[in-house]
Amino acid sequence: MSTTPKPDAADGIAPGGATRGSDRPTFWGRLTHAGPYRAVTDFVFASTRRQFILLAALPIVWVLFAHLGPILQMIRVSFLDSYPPAVGYTPQFTLDNWASFFKESIFIKPFFRTLMFSLSLTFATLVLIYPVAYFLARHVKRDNQMLLLLMLLIPFWVGEIVRTYAIMILLGNTGAVNLILKTLGLIDRPIPFMFTGFSLSFGIVYLTSLYMLMPLYSALEKIPPTYTEAAADLGAGAWTRFRRVTLPLSLEGISSGCTLVFLISTGLYATPILLGGPSTTLFSQTIAGFFHVAGDKWPTGAAFSTIMLLTALILSGTFMKLIGSLTRGPQK
């Protein structure tokens, strides 16, 4: 911050007194003494209550309207028999949209597949990323940590579509992996990686792994190395040190990393379309289907979205609470 020695143009007081000979007040002096400004501020700051109301009004309206509004409307629509409303017809209340979820296996299957996929991939990502985060936080010199982390962040900034496409090129029938296997003489015909559970899992982990890395890294980085040294001094072996010191102290990172990855993977839409096949249809595709086909299937889509949202939030909420009770357990 200190490396910006430019004075505000608005003030016009040059450093070193180079500019002199001005008999005008500065911008802020003129502003604060201007009649309209004074009238407004005198009104606003007349009472702390009024001040607070004016400060709080916009945020409260914004979060209620823009953040909560869409969700509430989605829930409302899920109980209507038709939406968007046709001209001259008032939609009626119905539970059919919710009921249809439990009636047809074509809906329930993708739902549970999504849950299983998301849960198992979250766990896999955790196992894969923990050593990476640990290595970065504990075995790399402070100065290099940022560099190595930055390197991992670059792919992270590239969007879902571009990265999914990269995976398609890697795993396609004429992709790099098949080319290598063929050149090595391990296969004659390309292995059909694409449009399977494998390619989808591979892609999802590829997309979400950094959301696991960041919280894990920051949790691990906060643990002072003296803690494990103290444990070693007291005779704890490597495994015990990890299990009794490092792991409990990184639980917070595990909790937020897993929650993030889980919520993101349940919400992916383009990736299952591009990488998955008919046998791997996920619930996001089911939901989206109600909005693509003609006809008024929106309420069913809304009901299914609500089911999905509630399930995802309840699962991750329970998980975070569980981890939370662990951290406040015997270690502290």
């Binding site: 004075p7 003030d11 016009g12 007081i13 450093p15 500019t19 002199r20 000979g21 001005s22 008999d23 005008r24 007040p25 500065t26 802020w28 002096g29 003129r30 604060t32 003494h33």
Partner: peptide
């Protein structure tokens, strides 16, 4: 310099 002039600006003193 600008720290010291902060309060003066708000008194609507001229730049001189």
């Amino acid at each position: 310099m600008r720290n010291v002039s902060f309060g003066l600006e708000l008194k609507r003193m001229t730049k001189d």
